[in-house]
């Protein structure tokens, strides 16, 4: 496994706050609006250490990351989550971890934050729609959580479920997907050190539109695999059904690894537009994480297992 060395000082400590908050908007709207954007209870900062897994690429601004989201529980337009997610109640919150585990149990949010030291992970995110961002998440390896419940030998897959409460999530009233939103990973993918549960962004508590209070981030897969606002994690022997591949099996597979050689049936995946850039760039196999993860898929036909 290649571990790239990066600066020991997290870049968020260098980048002045008003720069990443997008100066123009910051000055026009004032600090009050910025706080409202983050949610009233999101003023808390998270201390985290840097990680060798972080990229040194230019990060997208907080405005870009928090106003351009796919989170269908709050509407299907990319501006909907920022407008509607304020109704989400993120406290109290807990995740049930169950299934093929020696010690299944429920984790409250306070416990989750203490499972492992929080790290800043600056990852590329590639959406299946053909755009990408660079996002400074704060989180911890999913493996740290899973080890605590002691997966049995039958735990071959991990299934995830989002909250689906129509009272808090207006989009859940529409039938656009089969709620609750579901995702899944193979156990080795879930235990991989790149796979994290994120609880923060830009050094602060995760904004609601980004999947607060806790979401998955799997940087070598298309963004929809990184399920938001998780309430349930289930270890199981069989491959779980997932929301997008249930909705449209020919277009979205279980694996959904970023792959420029396998097109979406209706559009090419060879290139992507990094948000903030005019020219498109070439999409990299496994979103540029091939050195770390390609071995997981050795011998597999990635056209068949898309």
């Amino acid at each position: 496994m290649l571990i790239r060395s990066a600066s020991d000082i997290p870049a968020s400590a260098i980048t002045p706050r008003e720069v990443y908050l997008n100066r123009r908007q910051f000055m026009a709207a004032g600090a009050g609006m910025t706080l409202a954007l983050l949610g009233a209870d999101a003023a808390a900062s998270l201390l985290s250490r840097s990680s060798p897994f972080s990229t040194t690429e230019d990060k997208n601004s907080l405005k870009e990351i928090t106003t351009y989201n796919n989170f269908y529980e709050f509407g299907t337009d990319k501006s909907d989550p920022a407008a509607n997610a304020h109704t989400l109640k993120t406290s109290p919150w807990s995740i049930v971890v169950e299934g093929e585990a020696g010690k299944p149990r429920r984790f409250g949010m306070e416990e989750l934050l203490k499972i492992a030291p929080l790290e800043e992970r600056i990852y590329r995110l590639r959406c299946v729609e053909g755009w990408s961002m660079v996002i400074p998440w704060v989180g911890f390896p999913l493996a740290s959580l899973l080890k605590l419940v002691e997966p049995t030998s039958k735990a071959k897959f991990v299934a995830f479920e989002s909250l689906a409460d129509p009272q808090q999530m207006p989009g859940v009233k529409s039938r656009v997907l089969d709620w609750p939103y579901r995702e899944g990973l193979r156990i080795d993918e879930a235990m991989h050190p790149l796979t994290i549960l994120a609880v923060g962004l830009y050094g602060e508590v995760l904004p609601k539109q980004n999947g607060a209070p806790v979401r998955l981030v799997v940087p070598w897969k298309y963004g929809f695999k990184s399920i938001k606002s998780i309430v349930r994690i289930r270890l199981q022997e069989t491959q779980p059904s997932t929301s997008w591949s249930t909705a449209n099996p020919s277009e979205y597979g279980f694996y959904s690894n970023v792959n420029p050689a396998v097109d979406h049936p209706r559009w090419s995946q060879a290139t992507e537009r990094r948000i903030g850039e005019l020219f498109k760039r070439k999409t990299l196999p496994f979103n540029g994480y091939a050195d770390q993860v390609a071995a997981l898929y050795k011998g597999m036909d990635l056209r068949k297992f898309y």
Binding site: E64, K78, R273, I275
Partner: peptide, 9 residues
Amino acid sequence: QAVPVNPVE
């Protein structure tokens, strides 16, 4: 005014 995050789209 740089309002749209993805202006080309």
